[in-house]
Design a protein around this nucleic acid. Sequence first.
DNA 1: AATTTTTCTTAACCCAGGTTAACTCGCTTA
DNA 2: TAAGCGAGTTAACCTGGGTTAAGAAAAATT
Lengths: 199, 199
Amino acid sequence: MEIYPSEVSAKFIDLFMNKMNFTEEEFTLILSFFRREYIPRKFFYLKAGQTAKYKAYINKGSTRTFTTDEKGGEHILYFSFEDWWIGDLESFYNQQPTTLNIQAMEDCELLLLHKNDLEKLGKQIPKLKTLFAEKERKSSFANMQRLKEVKTFSAEDRYLNLINKHPEIFQRIPLQYIAMYLDIEPQSLSRMRKRLSCK
Amino acid sequence: MEIYPSEVSAKFIDLFMNKMNFTEEEFTLILSFFRREYIPRKFFYLKAGQTAKYKAYINKGSTRTFTTDEKGGEHILYFSFEDWWIGDLESFYNQQPTTLNIQAMEDCELLLLHKNDLEKLGKQIPKLKTLFAEKERKSSFANMQRLKEVKTFSAEDRYLNLINKHPEIFQRIPLQYIAMYLDIEPQSLSRMRKRLSCK
DNA sequence: AATTTTTCTTAACCCAGGTTAACTCGCTTA
DNA sequence: TAAGCGAGTTAACCTGGGTTAAGAAAAATT
């Protein structure tokens, strides 16, 4: 079950060793508390009703985080890729059931740190709390940006923005999920793409 | 310019004295750094392009926080009332220009704490940092809830939810602004209200 | 290579919400 | 008292996206 430094991504090491300046010993200790979990494509890391118990780092793969409405429609809040932390902060922090679903879009390899272990470690290595505080702040800013974007721009504007700023997403995520992200039907996305390609 | 305890709301005192257990001396010191600002109805506390320099507490009144699109349309992210803290956390934290606008819906009396003073005070009274950390965490959870709500539910569902959970808002906010909050035209809201009242 | 499954596209129809414009009602101001 | 203004409603028209259904293309499985 042990995870070796050679098995984690360069970005994970960079985060601890360069960005946050942990010592070798600290990093080794922290890593010893992480455990690896594989989530095959289409399987779930988190389902509505469950309580988030881990900080989860995507070492490999991609996920979608979505809600469902009363008619069974799925609404994707965001996609996540390598070097992102996924979960539901409110559920994790208050240990209450989440309303989010997190599903693997590709086979995923996650690195998990349990809330109890995080708290234990945080006492020994306060800088670890700083790291997650910064991550959480960034994530809250990103949520605010998403809220502004969803409120302010049309599906078409958001599509154009996505294809300009993150064309790589289109290599990894089927269009039907992009449609769920834009909150339109796949047929409408298809229609829109045709209209835009004429111009 | 000095603010007396008798001039601040009971909730403001309760926050410091009961919820956070500051001493009289600490509270007096903290209050001495706040300054009062009046924002008449329709005037702005913050405009896109400005940098948020203060933590702002609504002692009296209400505001709307909105973005504008390229066609000049206004999209209200949320309304705020007495005992709320308003601003743009990302702008405040990184001292960068905001994309938000905050406008008084009623004559407002705000209590402002400058970023520099907050940092000074935070060193003397660490618990003050805890207070704002908690407020910021709550606000980030609220933003996430808003994002989920906007993505998951139709304008009609969100209207019904609003009128059920916050009927008092309809006493203070004109319907045309409720429409901007729901991201529909005032005429559509009118039509929707008529349709719903028939049932 | 053939078959099945998934993904994406196209077309026809329909309707909710946008657009434009006119009108009512209540409140303020001259 | 009248004129002016803002807020809300109503109606007629139009368009973009939902719906349904079917077909094409690509990927996975046999």
